[in-house]
Amino acid sequence: MDPKTVVKKFLTFRECGPLYLPKGKGFQHSPDDDVVSLPSWLSEEDVEYFASKLEKAGISGGVNYYRVTHLNWELSAPWSGAKVTVPTKFIIGDQDLVYYMPGMKDYIHNGGFHKDVPLLEEVVVMEGVAHFINQEKPNEINKHLIEFFRKF
């Protein structure tokens, strides 16, 4: 796929549930299907910018992060069991792929998250929003941030 199509498909991905990439089917659409409708929060100018960076740097760096997941676990092992001990507000979209990873909703809403983040003040699940919440709903995100920081 050309970089613009990759960027469009990646930023507009909205399938709630675990991510599966069936062999030969690619990411969300076939490589020949390059027609992607842009949502109001994503302009062609944005796509051009991101695609130019992708074209220059390639996608290997991002993909390699996931290829070495085992190494990431090894490198972060000294912090295993560490708690996040600062006041925290967590915001996620109800259409975010991460929210639908197996066990994630239970972890977030039924005590596991609060156990690991004891100063968790609030969990916000924004409706109609996927992974790029700061781009999709910037005004709402800013309101949440300002509300949170005013406490300090």
Rank of each mutant, 00 (worst) to 15 (best):
N134D: 07
K115S: 12
N110G: 05
F10G: 05
P18G: 13
G62R: 04
Q28L: 11
S80Y: 14
Y107S: 02
G61L: 08
G103H: 05
L145I: 08
N72I: 10
I91P: 03
F113W: 09
T85Y: 01
L11M: 15
E74S: 13
V125N: 01
N72P: 05
N134E: 10
K23D: 13
R14Q: 07
L119E: 14
K143E: 15
H131F: 06
M1S: 12
G62Q: 08
E44V: 00
I91W: 03
Y49T: 14
S76I: 09
G61S: 11
K137N: 07
V124K: 05
A77P: 04
D116R: 10
L145Y: 09
V125W: 00
R14H: 10
T88D: 00
D2L: 11
Y65S: 03
N110V: 02
A130D: 05
S30H: 14
S76R: 11
I146D: 13
D96N: 04
R14L: 02
H131I: 08
E121A: 09
V129W: 00
N139H: 11
Y66M: 04
K151F: 06
N72Y: 08
E45C: 05
V124S: 06
L19N: 01
S60M: 14
S76A: 13
Q28E: 07
V63S: 07
V129L: 00
F152I: 13
D96L: 02
F152C: 08
L21V: 14
K143T: 14
I91S: 08
K4I: 00
F10H: 12
V7E: 04
L19V: 15
S40I: 13
H144A: 07
K89M: 12
N72C: 06
Y107N: 04
V6E: 03
H131T: 09
N64E: 11
L54H: 00
P22W: 01
G61K: 13
N72S: 12
K89G: 01
